Structure formats: C-alpha cells, structure tokens
Simulated assay, not measured.
Amino acid sequence: MSKPFDMELFLAAVLTGSNATRQRHLRQAKMIQAGISERWQLETPWAWKKKHLAWFLDHRLAGRCKATRYYYLLTVRLLARRLERAWVFKC
C-alpha cells in the first residue's frame, strides 16, 4: 500500500507569501493534480509533461473567468519551477 502524494511537501521549497496565498496555491495544485490524474492516471507531478499542464489550463479552466485562470497560471508556474523546468505558458 503506497502513501498518497503530499503536494504540500512537494511545493514547500517554492511556496512564499502570506498564509492565504500558500493555501490557495496548495488547493489549486491539488485540483490540478486531481484533473491530470483523472485524465491521464498520472498521480505525481514528476510524471507530468508540459502538455498535461497546458491541457489543464486550456480545457479544465475553459469556462472560468480570466482572474481564476490567471491564479491557476501562477500555480502552474510554481509547479514548473519546482520541477526545474523552463516551461512557458500563455495566460
């Protein structure tokens, strides 16, 4: 039996700002993880590629307002920084 992936521990190195901001990024990262896991059965960010995060931004957030998409983009950028990737995503 394996332990569930701990997103808080994964992002701890790159999370900065107020407590509310850190909690928002964690909540959004867990939503991103759930969406990618549901679509591609990839449980951990180490298995993700740029196309997975781009899919989430383009398709799962399609009906959301611009501000919501922007805040998710910030979280995606944190995930890319933690994965040490130089991925660039459009807003």
Rank of each mutant, 00 (worst) to 15 (best):
A12C: 10
A34C: 12
D58G: 09
W48C: 00
M31Q: 13
L57I: 13
A12R: 13
C91L: 12
W40I: 00
E84W: 14
F5K: 02
K90A: 14
Y70H: 09
L74K: 10
E43C: 01
L42Y: 04
A67V: 14
G17H: 06
K49W: 05
L73V: 10
L78T: 03
E38K: 08
P45T: 00
T75D: 06
K49R: 15
M31A: 14
R22V: 03
R39Y: 01
E43V: 01
Y70L: 14
T21Q: 14
W40F: 14
L83M: 07
L78Q: 00
A54G: 03
R81Y: 05
L83W: 01
P4V: 05
A20S: 11
A47P: 01
K50W: 05
Q28C: 11
W87K: 03
V88N: 08
G63K: 02
W46H: 14
L26A: 11
C65G: 07
A29N: 08
M31V: 14
R27E: 07
N19T: 08
F56W: 03
R22Q: 03
N19I: 13
D6C: 03
K50L: 07
L26Y: 12
L73H: 09
A13T: 08
T68D: 11
E43W: 00
K50I: 10
N19G: 13
H25T: 08
Y70E: 12
Q33V: 00
C65L: 07
D58R: 11
T68P: 02
I36M: 02
R27Q: 14
R64K: 10
Q23M: 15
E8F: 06
L26G: 13
L15Q: 00
A34T: 12
K3P: 04
